[in-house]
Design a protein around this nucleic acid. Sequence first.
DNA 1: CTGTCAATATTTATTACTAATTTAGGAGAA
DNA 2: TTCTCCTAAATTAGTAATAAATATTGACAG
Lengths: 245, 245
Amino acid sequence: MTPYARRGVHGQTVEALAHRILGGEIPEGATLDLVALQGELDVSLTALRESLKVLAAKGMVDARQKRGTFVRARADWHLLDADVLRWQFEGGRTTEADRSLLRDLAEVRVTIEPAAVRLAAERRTDADLVALAAALEAMGQHDAGPAHAVEADLTFHRALLAATHNELLERMEMVIESGLAHRDRIVHSSPHSRDPVPAHRTVLDAVRDGDPSAAEAAMRALLDQAGRDLERIHGTDDTKGTGGT
Amino acid sequence: MTPYARRGVHGQTVEALAHRILGGEIPEGATLDLVALQGELDVSLTALRESLKVLAAKGMVDARQKRGTFVRARADWHLLDADVLRWQFEGGRTTEADRSLLRDLAEVRVTIEPAAVRLAAERRTDADLVALAAALEAMGQHDAGPAHAVEADLTFHRALLAATHNELLERMEMVIESGLAHRDRIVHSSPHSRDPVPAHRTVLDAVRDGDPSAAEAAMRALLDQAGRDLERIHGTDDTKGTGGT
DNA sequence: CTGTCAATATTTATTACTAATTTAGGAGAA
DNA sequence: TTCTCCTAAATTAGTAATAAATATTGACAG
């Protein structure tokens, strides 16, 4: 499920270290005291090193002989990595950096998704359409619980990216997913939520018709509406609002 | 420099494994015979495990008890990771998958960069403008060698992403970089290459003026021209062509 | 002042062993 | 038969101690 093995002591060690670094507890450029951490986290040196290897693979730390193991500059973090993205949200309560990340996330969505639907409209196969229709269907089942609806929403957007038949764009799923997940944390399943299905159906129709411009317009409308809804909730701190992307 | 520690025996092991998997030598879903690999690569079991940890962090393998360590489905690979991207090109000669990846890369650029310059035009600081101007300056020095020109080109586009002040978009650099690097391998520094500076200057001017629409248009023109040039070279296999993005 | 060489400290890699876990498969019950 | 639970084997996960490699530092010679 998760990209790296999250099982066992090792996984916990990775998470603990990641949270410390992403939370700023261990600042950029700091050299880690391996022995101290070893005792602190209660793991062996080998386990600690394997954990650091995972973080190194994500550009967060670098271990060099003599100089020691140190935290790399934030500019080197693989912020597009699914784990790094998740850790940032898990880390702490809503901070300033958190808010900034959220803005960035939204901007990426607005960048990627309209372009993606254009390609999807041009390349979608019948199988893609089936997947999209199924996701839309699932979104319509309001009685299956809020978690179900969110999952269906995500599935729809994932299917959309898959329909581009561009492997790289498909991987942007991680970003879209993070954005959606957090959005959901704010807009926690209000009973008065606006029905997200119609807007999504408009997108699907355009994709089915192979009309890139209409698809893009529909997607922009969808994102724009979601953004305004979110803003409204944020501003008034009122729990009524949107129910979907 | 590289995200994971590439030094020593360990780095080599990671690369070797990565190439085997990305090259299809070890197919998706295959379970790895750790002991066999250990002897084959001539490393200890621990070192092998640490290498696999790096690959696990990039979504390429998963190690589960009893079931063994196996190659994950390609859909799980972190294709947006700089290393994974690089390994794919390093792996083998120009294959069909390679060509497909190249197309995907180009599409991502066309998606990201026009949107990025819009943001850059709105948010660029004076420092950003200085960096952009410096990169443009460097591009103009035709006598400094082809490698220098390519590096300057890259620097320009990197500075552009930085000017968006969106950390996530900034990380897309990896993708842009891969695209540029490979483009360069095809368009190997023709002496008759078209001067890339004017098109880039148009972009810079629009960004300086804070005109998002003009900036986007200029970037689209730039990408479009580069794409057509590349296509022409590809089609006619003629070495004359573009000299910049 | 500069470059080479060696001392030194610290990480990386090896070896060998133990522990934890998970799934396959069988036993027994419904 | 089929489902559940339990046992057992297989394999990764983790520990610890040691050896090797390598980068930094300082000293010394050119």
